[in-house]
Each structure stands twice: as structure tokens, then as C-alpha cells.
Computed example of a mutant assay.
Amino acid sequence: MADTAETIDHPSVTESLRLDNQLCYALYAAAHRMTKSYRPLLERLGVTYPQYLVLLVLWEQDGVTVSEIGRRLRLDSGTLTPVLKRLESAGFLLRTRRQSDEREVEIGLTDQGRELRVEAATVRETVMCQLEMSEPEIRNLRRDLNLVIDRLGSPE
């Protein structure tokens, strides 16, 4: 028992368990702050942050399947479906069964959804100004975060 107590009280263990030394906490806090920064900008557009992410995928490539959007956003269809339904109710997209395979639901932007892209163009720029980071710094941070995501693997 004494060995366990000494190990727990060892400075390296104590230091490793400090909140400020936790990568998970830094990522959590950064994600929370990032979402909070986007919130007022997206409210003006009438969308939530998850809805905005779906729209970003569709602005890159319109007419993709639910599974493709889920793959791009690393979300399962159970999480994605309510977001898509709300975007459809708001008039930004349409969900239709693919004629080639009725098991697949294709997501397409409406005119209103395409027009929202113009309004959304300043959202990223506004948040990037808050960060006071250069494009190369942002690119490097994004690369490092994608490495973390890839190394931790899929949530399934």
C-alpha cells in the first residue's frame, strides 16, 4: 500500500494531473470558446454552429448523401438527422431519396441556402480577426488538430 501512496504523491504524478497540463481540457476550452465566438455571428444568419458546419459541406459540394456529410463532419446519422431536419424546416435545404438507390438520402441546397453563403462569407474572417493569428499559424494549428483527431481514431 505504501508504494501506491508514494506513487500517487510523486511530483511527476501530481504534475501530470494538474488541470493546466491536460491537453483534453485545453481542447475542450478552446472548442467551447470557438463555438461561443461563432454563436452571435451565426444567430444573425439564423443557424446554429452544427447547422453551419453542414452548410459548409454543402457549399463545397451540393447534392451529397447524408452519409457523406456525416463522414466529412465525423458525425453519425442519428446526430446529423435532427440538424438536417431543422435546416430543411428553415428552408435552406431539401432531403430527397436518391433515384439510383432509395436507401440513400441526398441533401441539396435551396436557393435560400445558396444565398446564405454570401452572408456567411464574413463569419470566418470575423473570428480569425479575434484570434489575431496569421493564415500560416491557423494552417499549422489546424494540421496539428487534425493529427490529434486522426490518431485518436473514429468514435465508433
Score class of each variant (00 low, 15 high):
Leu17Cys: 10
Leu84Ile: 12
Met34Tyr: 11
Glu102Arg: 12
Phe92Pro: 01
Gly78Ala: 09
Gly70Asn: 06
Arg97Asn: 08
Arg103Lys: 14
Gln61Leu: 04
Arg39Asp: 09
Gln51Tyr: 03
Ser67Ala: 11
Arg103Asn: 14
Gly63Tyr: 02
Leu94Gly: 02
Leu17Asp: 03
Asp101Gly: 01
Asn21Asp: 02
Pro82Asp: 10
Ala26Val: 08
Glu102Gly: 06
Thr14Gln: 14
Arg39Val: 11
Leu53Tyr: 00
Leu45Val: 04
Leu27Cys: 12
Pro50Gly: 06
Arg33Cys: 09
Pro82His: 09
Ala31His: 11
Lys85Ser: 15
Ser100Gln: 11
Glu68Val: 06
Gly46Asp: 08
Thr48Asn: 02
Thr14Met: 10
Arg39Phe: 03
Thr81Met: 14
Leu87Ala: 12
Glu88Arg: 15
Glu104Leu: 14
Ser100Arg: 11
Leu58Val: 03
Ser12Glu: 06
Lys85Met: 14
Gly91Thr: 07
Ser89Gln: 14
Ser12Lys: 05
Thr48Arg: 05
Met34Phe: 13
Leu93Phe: 05
Arg86Ala: 12
Ala26Arg: 15
Leu84Trp: 12
Thr14Pro: 00
Val57Phe: 01
Ala26Tyr: 10
Leu45Asp: 05
Thr35Ala: 13
Tyr52Trp: 13
Phe92Val: 01
Val64Gly: 01
Ser89Pro: 01
Ala90Pro: 03
Val64Cys: 00
Leu53Cys: 10
Thr14Leu: 13
Cys24Pro: 00
Asp101His: 07
Pro82Arg: 08
Gln61Val: 04
Arg72Tyr: 02
Ser37Ala: 15
Ser12Asn: 03
